[in-house]
């Protein structure tokens, strides 16, 4: 099958490429663009490790073709920190609250949380749990991921973070 020409924006940078129509977005990002933050965990759109932000949506890039993203704007975890290297509130929150262990789900988890907080800047714990239910973590049991997102929400909203009593 003929390769197709696509143009899109990744982390603010314009990108042009030739892709086979069947090239999965995750492989395009990881192998052609060398952005290896997003991962493949399940192959079947259940684990969310491949989550990237595409035109304001959290998308599972293992179940999307690169060619579908033609003309889109994509943000990956590599685009989250500031240009000077300062971590985003979410990245900082994940570290401060021990919201990760092996780190494999983390890029997808951060990208999903990013969109969640864009849509709901002050989520309840229940809303956070529901909002990240498309992302599996095998290490943390989610409790500290919830705290990490609460930490980030507080930081973004400019209010002091208070851990809920257990």
């Amino acid at each position: 099958m003929a390769k197709a020409h696509i143009e899109l924006t990744i982390n603010g940078q314009p990108v042009e490429a030739l892709v086979e129509p069947r090239t999965l977005l995750i492989h395009f990002i990881r192998e052609q663009q060398n952005l290896t933050g997003a991962h493949i965990g399940c192959d079947t759109s259940h684990c969310g490790a491949c989550t990237v932000d595409l035109d304001g949506m959290s998308v599972k890039s293992c179940t999307t073709f690169a060619i579908q993203a033609n003309g889109s704007s994509i943000t990956t975890v590599e685009g989250m920190a500031a240009a000077d290297g300062t971590l985003s509130a979410l990245q900082e929150g994940f570290r401060m609250m021990h919201g990760l262990q092996c780190g494999y789900c983390t890029p997808g988890m951060i990208m999903r949380s990013h969109r969640l907080l864009q849509e709901n800047p002050n989520p309840t714990e229940e809303e956070i749990r529901f909002g990240i239910a498309g992302n599996l973590c095998r290490c943390t049991g989610y409790q500290n991921i919830v705290k990490a997102i609460q930490y980030a929400a507080a930081k973004i909203n400019g209010v002091p973070f208070q851990e809920a009593a257990e």
Binding site: S45, G48, T51, M57, S58, V59, K60, T63, G134
Partner: peptide
């Protein structure tokens, strides 16, 4: 239905 990511698509 499904999960947040899938509901966007």
């Amino acid at each position: 239905i499904a999960d947040p990511q899938i509901r966007y698509m």
